[in-house]
Design a protein around this nucleic acid. Structure first.
Lengths: 342, 342
DNA sequence: TAAGCTGTTGCAAACGTTTGCCGAATGGAG
DNA sequence: CTCCATTCGGCAAACGTTTGCAACAGCTTA
């Protein structure tokens, strides 16, 4: 049915190898012949069969993109950026969703391995060992997790968490809660460590609640527990949980940020739409997607295994306010600054 | 490098065709032989090369999923459902984003055509003619657009729009605005027609504002124009625009739903998170994704070109309230019902 | 004028599978 | 004991490409 290289060869009176070269090594064919071949190819509607090409060259011009949950608003901007960037480099992208399940994740990587030139593993939940192992089957770039010896692009969540905690301390909060993310998440460990260290250094308390699935519902469900700790400020693993918490607190008549301050992480599209607008740590997800694609495609050339860390920024909106130990002067300035940003 | 069927054959002392049959036609090989082959395959870590298989069978076991904008929260649930469903049927999914550009869309379909067994075209912006044309190159299922003779799955937005308008009329609104979506959108035409007819039948006014890009910003930007019309209720093309409008109105000190009622369409994850919670028409996007995959995969068997319409439901939350012509009794009941749903 | 280069093309093997065909072995029926 | 049917496995062609090698023509160089 489909028109092949052979049809083009016959129609333009040359050997199939000449047609092949017209597309994959144009400088090796006489300009005159080339244009003739191109013309008939165009006319016949010929398109090279990538599968056949892959079979012999070993390069599929496909990449795999594996994420924990496509519907988690953190990922779509990353997927979009990666796909667009890959396509610009003539690569197509398989997208797959593991539903936060490490077993599915492993299956998926292995199923995809033969069909792609490399895989972008986003926020993987597998063990380091498993990742090391699949790495031998297919080139990998890990996103949002740092494993020694493996190419990775991560957001500097440690920095973000420190900034967030410092912001809360500056506002006069002395008892904080970290509403933790899922077990097995590198990001979660980083945040926890950074937040804990920063709070401790300032002589403040930090209570960790979790682990939790990183969705709105668990944030809402944690409201009760948060209140019981007596803390006046909460840092959540991500915006989804922060938003869930925010609303559950309001439903209980707790004023945010009057009685409790809430900070999220990610700056998903909707964190600016809830009321109060959410103070959060912005993650450059689109840049991460592009960078990861670049790293993956370069990996073929040399064996370089760089690890790139992307800057994060605290965005102060309206879900954070003065705490019980607020130094009157400093606070008003701080709050004013926050309102300006809005 | 990679372990092939030949390695397995050698290691288990059979011909490659026997190995092949062990995987693709198990009933043709002696159980004893089969288990021996499976054992060595397992041990060697053999995985069939899908590209090679595709070359000879003509079936790639891949499908393409083309959407206008991955980052538009309407799509991720659809993508997720389609991917999961496809994988359960042993298919992998290419996802691509056209950025609402019909030219990119056409390119993409043609580039993907050879690599997939079929394509899901979601909310396409191409002309009917172009779609008809590519249809001859690759099996297609169109989502969110109805084209005669083409397999399609659409949401019954007409029904949703009618329900929404009736809800507003029941509440006592007599002057409505339809905040329109993008040019070239089939959905947009359907809503507009249904809403217009329903309003007219009840002797109410419906002013159309648009077309607009289907994003939050245009919703916000339309606030001024909406107020100028003097309308007391707005139906928006989608939740994104409705939310943008909602917030812009509140920023201007307009009470929602006290002064103006707002209804969205789609029921994206965040429409329940804004305050007031958004009354909206729920679209079964996940079901649409699954159905579309099923239709695509069945298409190979027969040439059936069904067109499936999925039910939509009005979800009454808190962004709609009594209008100027509200019959006192009916309203209180209605509003009470709305609050219960919350 | 012979030798050697350069540019262009054809030839054929190879990539990893599937599958129609054929032959060998087995076993039951007559 | 022969015949036939059935089951199993091997052989080889085919899928649509790429690519090393060789052939040839037309030059240049000595």
């Amino acid at each position: 049915m489909a028109v092949t290289i052979r049809d083009v060869a016959r129609a333009s009176g040359v050997h199939i190898s000449t047609v092949s070269r017209t597309f994959s090594a144009p400088h090796l064919v006489n300009p005159e012949t080339r244009s003739r071949v191109l013309a008939t190819a165009e006319q016949l509607g010929y398109r090279p069969n990538r599968a056949a090409r892959a079979l012999i060259t070993g390069r599929t011009h496909n990449i795999g993109l594996i994420v924990a949950d496509i519907a988690n608003p953190f990922f779509p901007p990353l997927i979009k950026a990666a796909e667009t960037h890959a396509r610009r480099r003539d690569y197509h992208v398989f997208v797959a969703d593991t539903d936060e399940d490490p077993i599915v994740e492993l299956d998926l990587v292995q199923a995809l391995a033969k069909q792609v030139d490399g895989i972008l593993l986003c926020s993987p939940r597998m063990s380091d060992d498993q990742i090391e192992q699949v790495r031998r089957e297919v080139p990998l770039v890990v996103v949002n997790r740092m494993i020694t010896g493996l190419p990775a692009v991560v957001m500097d969540v440690g920095h973000g968490a420190r900034e967030a905690v410092r912001h809360l301390l500056d506002l006069g909060h002395r008892h904080l809660v970290y509403l933790a993310g899922p077990r097995g998440s590198w990001t979660n460990r980083e945040i926890r460590r950074a937040a804990g260290a920063t709070a401790r250094a300032a002589g403040a308390d930090l209570t960790v609640l979790g682990p939790n699935q990183p969705v709105e519902e668990t944030g809402a469900a944690a409201a009760e527990a948060v209140l019981r700790t007596g803390a006046t400020a909460v840092l959540a693993y991500n915006d989804l949980m922060a938003i869930g918490l925010l609303q559950a607190l309001q439903d209980r008549g707790v004023d945010v940020p009057g009685q409790v301050s809430v900070v999220g992480i990610d700056d998903i599209a909707y964190s600016g739409l809830v009321r109060p607008r959410l103070t959060t740590v912005a993650n450059p997800t689109a840049a991460a997607g592009r960078t990861a694609v670049d790293m993956l495609l370069q990996q073929g050339d040399d064996g370089a295994t760089g690890q790139v860390t992307l800057r994060t920024d605290l965005i102060i909106r309206n879900s954070t306010g003065p705490g019980p130990y607020a130094p009157a002067v400093a606070i008003t300035a701080e709050v004013a600054a926050a309102h300006v940003k809005e």
